[in-house]
Design a protein around this nucleic acid. Structure first.
Lengths: 182, 182
DNA sequence: TTTTGTTATGCATACTATTGCATATCATGG
DNA sequence: CCATGATATGCAATAGTATGCATAACAAAA
């Protein structure tokens, strides 16, 4: 039920095509909401059927026509209702932690590899989030409230990744201790 | 596909009933993997069908009979394979961040309420995780590796909650600034 | 005494997400 | 010349999760 509101929130900024939205979800919305292009196209279809967005077909040559989606008043009202309703925290499900819980069965080398890959991913994410912050959210001038809220969403990504990396440090230190027989 | 391994990991420690597992998922596994009792009972049935666990029926009076599940060698082998295979990071999906992304539509009072509730939940979680750490993971004596790995899973919960609360601080500070017209 | 909570199991349905497949053109690099 | 990746849209099948309902006894509190 929330994917549609993530889409509406993205469209609330600017009209976009399914393709654009897919890119946006992979970049600026990466720390907010995940969705595949199949999900996005499907849900956009529903949103249109239900009259929350309008579509403008833009013919192209060589490529399939673009379908530019635009949030309308109904959609804005629905989004507004939703954002002002409380929701439960999403549940935690992390396969890496399941693995640690079954620690006795772990092959330490393989774990070390997975951790190294994870570190790489987290570092890149963090670097990306920081670059976005540096580009868009460091101006001394006063930012409109709307901008500040988006900055906070980004801050969550940054603080979260920092915490992840800090934790990884603890994990790797422990593995080193184990390897050294401490 | 991972729920079953979370179950196997929990059973790897000790034989449990569906009911016990439900409690364990709500407490010690809260920061690891979430699952409802319906999911758990169903998956236990499958695991039994597929021969990864054995069942002992324990008759009771007044209440339904207990079904005590025990991981067997096949199950242990499957779990071992799984924990030593790399998996992708779970995708991020947070309705609260979607709301911030659509910041312009937010009712500040309602947001403040949702944030206060969230703070409460996170504080309680953190307090719980810390109490578990104090109880089980502070002995000076050397802990078996298996125990240390579980401690790391818990550390993730602790560091994560600390980071969440730190972020909430930033959010509330920003809201206060806005309210003061800064 | 009635309600609420705990113990204990499960089915059925609806919703959401993943994975595999399909199509078609253009640009770029090897 | 051929493979890969970007642009651009989507369908179908499967897997996984959530939600609502059902049963049944006992204990404790209101």
């Amino acid at each position: 039920m929330a994917l549609r509101f993530a889409l509406l929130a993205a469209l609330y900024e600017e009209p976009l095509t399914g393709y654009d939205l897919t890119l946006k979800f992979k970049t600026r919305l990466a720390n907010v909401w995940n969705a595949s292009h199949q999900q996005i196209y499907k849900e956009l279809g529903k949103l249109h059927e239900e009259g929350l967005v309008s579509v403008e077909d833009i013919p192209q040559q060589g490529k399939p026509d673009k379908r530019l989606y635009r949030i309308n008043e109904t959609g804005e009202a629905a989004l507004s209702d939703w954002v002002n309703t409380a929701h439960n925290r999403p549940p935690t499900r992390d396969p890496l932690l399941v693995k640690l819980f079954a620690g006795g069965l772990l092959d330490r080398d393989k774990l070390a590899h997975e951790l190294a890959d994870t570190r790489q991913i987290w570092r890149e994410q963090l670097a990306y989030y920081r670059s976005v912050e540096a580009q868009y959210f460091t101006s001394r001038a006063e930012m409109p409230a709307h901008f500040r809220f988006q900055h906070l969403a980004l801050r969550r990504g940054i603080l979260g990744m920092e915490s992840n990396l800090q934790w990884l440090g603890e994990v790797e230190a422990m593995l080193a201790d184990l390897a050294a027989g401490v």
